[in-house]
Design a protein around this nucleic acid. Structure first.
Length: 480
RNA sequence: UCCUCCUUAGCUCAGUUGGUUAGAGCAUCUGACUGUUAAUCAGAGGGUCGUUGGUUCAAGUCCAACAGGGGGAGCCA
């Protein structure tokens, strides 16, 4: 057995001294030819390894460079210096992997996030990304934990799908047909997919919702948590071409049940990260704080990261209807003074992100759940309200990020659903399997979708979504 | 996709109204020092100024196109 190591987090946490230990990790700095700051990714805190002068040969010391991987064995003692409680006085140091100091790009200094994105394969070794991805994992675990405790069944919906009728966005084609122009064609010149791998045209999924609804019609409560793909040419700080989405779907839920679950869910996973990743969040809070100081006074956020998260956990989300939101916006001084780029004048228009931000950041200063949107601006499967104008939709808007959750009560009445599909030119033949849920034992049900990276952004305070997924995919970029 | 800003050493950035040999800090290398905390001190190396084309006696500096990046918008999660 090779790994007899103790993790640095455990070693530092116990504060026990006077025992033999082995640590393994990557060198952050090597000071004074004696003091190695070693990190193993279990925490941002490094263990100080003391290589007593004269105990190690010159050749070994030369190989202890920033980025090198080493194994050190010795006695854990109370530190003789300030700055750490314990340190490891090395009896032996073994270089497991050299790192050419002239070529290793990470330095013990502040790097820009843009530069680190170019070396995404190495950025895991920085404090910022160490914290971000530990928090990401905690949130991921908390999601499964939340739904499991509530008796939800996790469903793996397909990544390759045949349907392209959901209208959730542009899709990536999946094919094994040749791309050199020799693929079989129909008489009208379009590609004939009969000889393709699946014998039909297929795409990467844009949502697991429709399949999720099928499972909910058997298990009652289900959730999906998987990768999702959108071939939109979106170049923003909150869009990715490949992202992870959580989509719960619940039988016997109406819109209010749906909102209650979504709010409880968000609070639960934030609470989990606060309880289990305090150190990482404090590091990220400090990082954000320094970043904020670079901004002009009027652009700085009023709350620090920890404060903001506490606030979200401890306060009810504001719940208003679309109609009320339009009223608030129309009557706002911001609107009257024509400070919006898009002036709010009539009911029925879609809200622009400037309006969402006004509601969340200026007016309510807390997360807002917007409900009952006009049916014209929402998807075909949303349940039609009795007023004939709106649907039982809900979006949760978060400060700094905007839409974090989109959901609705689903239209379970076959006649209404079919009518709406026709109006919106959704091909019913292709979705016949979906319509079976309405044919055989239809029931009131609801669900929502939550972009995982967006909640990771919210919790870590990272401004760019490309910095909360290890290897981001976006237009013109699929490195690593 | 649209608007806008940016691109100078490995990194972060200076570079004046266009003018001779393009600078700094950090990193790297060499040496000194040795209980340091992004160690310190001394010295050295390191640049086709994003690419291509244009204006000019002269371009890092002005103009254009393209590429890449940032911020904002749209689409959305």
């Amino acid at each position: 057995m090779f790994s007899t190591r103790i993790k640095i987090k455990e070693l530092l946490l116990s504060e026990k001294v006077n025992y033999q230990a082995t640590v393994m990790g990557w060198v952050r700095t090597f000071r004074n030819n004696q003091f190695i700051a070693l990190n193993d990714g279990s925490t941002n805190n490094n263990i100080q390894i003391v290589a007593t002068l004269g105990m190690f040969d010159e050749a070994t010391l030369k190989r202890i460079t920033t980025g090198a991987c080493i194994k050190a064995t010795g006695e854990v003692i109370a530190s003789l210096g300030k700055g750490q409680k314990v340190e490891l006085k090395a009896d032996s140091i073994e270089i497991l992997g050299d790192s050419d100091a002239e070529k290793f790009p990470l330095q013990p200094k502040k790097h820009s996030l843009e530069f680190l994105r170019e070396i995404a394969h190495l950025r895991f070794r920085t404090n910022t990304f160490g914290s971000v991805f530990r928090v990401r994992h905690a949130l991921s675990f908390a999601i499964h934990d939340f739904f499991t405790k509530k008796g939800f069944i996790g469903i793996h919906t397909p990544i390759i799908t045949a349907s392209d009728a959901e209208g959730a966005g542009e899709m990536f084609k999946v094919t094994t047909l040749p791309l050199d122009g020799t693929a079989p064609k129909n008489e009208d010149g379009t590609i004939n997919f009969k000889d393709d791998f699946f014998g039909r045209s297929t795409n990467l999924t844009v949502s697991g919702q429709l399949e999720g609804e099928l499972a909910a019609m058997a298990f009652g409560n289900i959730y999906t948590f998987g990768p999702t793909f959108r071939a939109e040419n979106s170049n923003t700080t909150r869009h990715l071409a490949e992202f992870w989405m959580i989509e719960p779907e619940m039988a016997f839920y109406d819109l209010e049940d749906n909102m209650n679950l979504a709010e409880e869910f968000i609070k639960h996973i934030i609470r989990y990260a606060m309880d289990n990743n305090r150190e990482d969040l404090e590091f990220l809070a400090q990082r954000l704080d320094e970043e904020e100081k670079q901004k002009p006074q009027n652009e700085r956020s009023e709350m620090g990261l920890i404060e903001k998260l506490e606030f979200v956990i401890n306060n009810d989300f504001e719940r208003i209807t679309y109609t009320e939101a339009i009223e608030i916006l129309r009557e706002s001084n911001h609107n009257k003074k024509k400070k919006f780029q898009y002036i709010i004048d009539k009911w029925g228009i879609d809200l622009q992100s400037e309006h969402e931000r006004y509601l969340v950041e200026k007016h309510f200063k807390k997360p807002v759940i917007l409900t009952n949107y006009p049916k014209e601006i929402k998807a075909f499967y949303m349940r039609q309200n009795d007023d004939g104008k709106t649907v039982a939709a809900m979006d949760i808007l978060a400060p700094g990020i905007g839409e974090i959750v989109g959901g609705s009560q689903r239209e379970e009445r076959m006649d209404k659903l079919l009518k709406r599909m026709k109006e919106m030119h959704i091909p019913t033949e292709e979705l016949d399997w979906y319509l079976d849920t309405r044919r055989f034992g239809a029931c009131p049900h609801a669900g929502f979708g939550l972009g995982f990276e967006r909640i990771v952004q919210f919790v870590t305070g990272m401004g760019n979504i490309r910095d909360v997924i290890p290897f981001p995919r976006y237009p013109k970029s699929a490195s690593f």
